[in-house]
Nucleic acid binder design. Structure first.
Lengths: 259, 259
DNA sequence: GATGTTGTCGTCAGGATGACGATATCCAGG
DNA sequence: CCTGGATATCGTCATCCTGACGACAACATC
């Protein structure tokens, strides 16, 4: 019933897993153990199995290659702050030396987590800071820029999607634990956007946006400074679908003052 | 080299082709000539050929089933106001009775155009108004809601993407001819969003947003009323990538006054 | 000419934003 | 104990953006 002219393509999923660690946006990369691109860094991913959904495949490959168990589907409110969404699909031609291969990329936003046990087709899964697009840094500084396949482009698309989503969705909370302070949330925005935000204005906007945050009433003291109030994502909010009104807009490109 | 556990999937492209006609957002649908879903309305689309890119396949299927020649890739500035972008990919399981099939959906935004010659696997390509999501209308009124496969969901995703894109991108011009009036542009926004916009405020925002419109200096008189100035999309602007600052935001949901 | 229609420019109040001062509450060290 | 540094939170103020709406210009039709 399916016409003969229709071709069947091998399909892979590749996961752009982002987190915020040490005040910087970081991406999860693996070292490829197999050809092609053996020894090259790449996004975790692999072939979709016959009876699998795309999302299940993304979660499975992430688990196999990094030991990380991602929830398939959106986590049940608090307890699963992770967010997994489809990014886009990269066409079958000219991206794999073995022949035409379709790749469906997924974007995972998660709090920083450890990397228990790499395995499968990859070794040495580790986090790498994502260099600012505007500031590629001096030669040799950027640890990225030479990924396998077309993963450089997929990573760039994923980072741009994440940056844009923080503006109009509550997904910044996907990088935080269940409960967090406004300062931690601001640090997420600053790390993902690579900008500096005024703490006072950010506090006013974040707490003043309806349907975003909910105060727990408890405090948390950590290090110096006045203890901060703990917040959580407002209940009955689907962080994948909710829209912030008004949005938190990125400050327009700040031209660095000439030194 | 590709592992045996990797499955190969037939891949289709489906096109959500939207336009604005008669003051309403309309979608291009075909009547399926072949099983499955023979006789049911569906989005134009079909299987990807072995040596084809996804975008080429989308353009080809659109041409085959509707006689419409869409540009592959982004048109060269003025002369090709059409816009074709990838929407998302719908997983292989449970969407085609013939078995697992991957579908990559594309979104086409275009000015109203005629439908020269349906052919291929479809007949009777025609435009159908997209009902407002909020107002499904009385039973039997909505011409949609029973499309083949999972095309209802794909259409809903495409419409939502189009509505969101008008806010922060210059893509509303993709529904217009090369040169257009502010009134025509406003009619596009009103049709896509299903709302009413104040003509004076819209004029101020549209002409006041940098990097959006460029006045041609010429006028056009059509019907009654003062002739309107003709504008075109600002040159050296990639409508697919440009971002409007500030964005044109949809008015928040207008609760219908109780009658 | 009167009237209706569409386009363009102004006005004005209210809300949102960015810059920044002021205060609260902690830690560290004299 | 007291001071200084650090973080959190609250206020103030000028500016910009927005929505609501008045005013006028330039057309068609009667």
């Amino acid at each position: 019933m399916i016409p003969d002219s229709a071709a069947a393509f091998p399909v892979t999923v590749d996961v752009v897993a982002l987190t915020v660690r040490d005040g910087a946006l970081q991406v999860l990369l693996v070292d490829r153990l197999l050809e092609p691109f053996r020894g090259t860094r790449a996004l975790p991913g692999g072939f979709v199995l016959p009876d699998e959904s795309l999302e299940d495949a993304a979660a499975r490959e992430l688990a196999e290659e990094t030991g990380v168990v991602a929830p398939s589907g959106n986590g049940p409110g608090p307890g699963h702050p992770w967010h997994l969404e489809q990014l886009r699909t990269y066409g079958p031609q000219g991206r794999d030396p073995r022949g035409p291969v379709l790749s469906v990329a997924y974007l995972l936003l998660a709090p920083a987590f450890g990397l228990p046990a790499p395995g499968g087709d990859a070794a040495e899964a580790a986090w790498f800071p994502v260099p600012d697009a505007e500031e590629p840094g001096p030669a040799g500084t950027a640890p990225l820029g030479a990924l396998a396949f077309d993963h450089d482009r997929i990573l760039a698309d994923g980072v741009e999607r994440a940056r844009a989503k923080l503006e109009y969705s509550p997904l910044a909370t996907a990088f935080c634990a269940d409960e967090f302070t406004i300062g931690e949330l601001r640090a997420v925005y600053e790390a993902v956007w690579g900008t500096h935000l005024d703490a006072r204005n950010f506090h006013r906007k974040a707490t003043g946006t309806p349907g975003f945050l909910e105060a727990t009433g408890r405090l948390r003291a950590e290090g110096p400074g006045r203890p901060a109030e703990l917040y959580r994502l407002a209940p009955s909010v689907d962080p994948a679908a909710a829209v912030l009104h008004p949005p938190l807009l990125r400050p327009p490109a700040t031209p660095a003052p000439p030194t």
